[in-house]
Amino acid sequence: MSRTVLIVDDAMFMRTMIADILKGADFEVVGEASSGVEAVQKYRELKPDLVTMDIVMPDMGGIDAVREIIKEDPDARILMCSAMGQQGLVVEAIQAGARDFVVKPFQPSRVLEAVQRLLG
């Protein structure tokens, strides 16, 4: 059975790219969100196996969204997708409960590796 993913990023471009990487590895993208607020709602609704989370977004950033999701589901598996130069924020996200992070631009192999480890 393929595992389910919720992709959170305010750029459709990024969501498409991540979706393509994960679909190639037998994931089912069950939802996409473009803001932190939406991410929290969709998570509640879809209970996906995995969330990929952007950091900088309108209407609640990624870190606050991680906090909200972890508050409701401490077992949530969230992979932060950060851009270069956000090390400080990544640390904060991990403290908030994210499990791992990848840095944009993504290398598909690196993304898949992180995902496998996270779900393994």
Binding site: D10, A11, F13, M14, M17, D54, V56, M57, P58, A83, M84, G85, K104, P105, F106
Partner: peptide, 26 residues
């Protein structure tokens, strides 16, 4: 809003391998 926009452009440009755009956005 400005920050988010330029940040998004940076991320997308980097993902596309558009190095010049990414550097400027950064």
């Amino acid at each position: 809003a400005i920050f988010r926009s330029v940040h998004t452009i940076k991320g997308m440009a980097a993902a596309m391998g558009y190095e010049v755009a990414a550097r400027l956005a950064h």
